[in-house]
Nucleic acid binder design. Structure first.
Lengths: 148, 148
DNA sequence: TGCGTCATGTCAGCAGTCTGACATAGCCTC
DNA sequence: GAGGCTATGTCAGACTGCTGACATGACGCA
């Protein structure tokens, strides 16, 4: 067994650095969202619904990489706060299409601006072209992960 | 307020794609580590100790981006399983330097090989040069996050 | 029509992590 | 030496997310 077959120096591991940046992003997002009374998961939910109105609980869960059960709690909290609406009964099947209220849209807009600033700050060491390349490279890996 | 100031289309957001890849990596790692009886956090602990013997609980926590309290539980579990040793009393200060046992080194080596394969699979869409560039770009962002 | 399969929403239980708190040990300053 | 500050280890409680399970509704097929 050679050294090449193990992970090796962690600082040379893409996965380790990836986690580091993701942790930094999550932490920074939490920092700006918390004063607005939002968790990162709640923001993700609002952002998804803002861009894709009518998504169901299960669909939101998939796109936010959490379980249906977890997303269900997120939706319930946001609904209690009047940020979104869900029909009591499904018109077709069991999926309950969710939509943002005015309050929800307002909160999403405010949070989105703050998160945008956080991302710009985090990736500021890279030029616009480098950021686009980084995004494309990561997207390629993500696509392969789903396929594989 | 223009569209440019909000996050915009999530698929065009570096942060969103970053989380996607990180989630894929975590999931894939969990999948290969679970049969070995290890969680991702436990593997991270073993890998850190393998590369840096004598790290304290607090130092391990910082490098794995968890709290001291969480890492403390990880250490306790691994110690119960005979994978590492900690002195009962500190020779200097309060930090208890931790080291892997033979069993711990063995488990770390086995897990490391598996994780290495997972990483290679995930980043296989990119060439070696692209992977190095990706790692360097991410490292630059991580360094800026710490500084800022 | 009846059955099997799949997706969805939801409930209960459990594991992992975090926050808050406290005691201890070393360092620095006065 | 006394006091303040920092870092570390640890305990207790709360919270979040996950796994497992169940019921319901739609669809495909014999």
């Amino acid at each position: 067994m050679t050294q090449e077959e193990t992970v090796g120096d962690l600082d040379q591991s893409v996965g380790y650095v990836l986690k580091q940046v993701q942790a930094s992003l999550h932490s920074a997002m939490d920092e700006v969202l918390r004063p607005m009374g939002l968790t990162v998961a709640q923001y993700a939910c609002l952002e998804l619904l803002g861009q894709h109105p009518g998504l169901s609980n299960s669909e939101l869960a998939r796109r936010a990489w959490v379980t249906r059960q977890s997303m269900n709690l997120v939706l319930r909290r946001l609904q209690e706060r009047g940020m979104l609406t869900r029909p009591d009964r499904a018109a077709h099947g069991r999926a309950l299409p969710t939509e943002l209220t005015r309050a929800g849209q307002s909160a999403r807009r405010e949070a989105s601006v703050a998160v945008r600033a956080v991302e710009q700050q985090l990736f500021s060491p890279l030029s616009q072209a480098q950021q686009r390349r980084l995004r494309e490279d990561l997207a390629a890996c993500a696509a392969a992960a789903i396929a594989g």
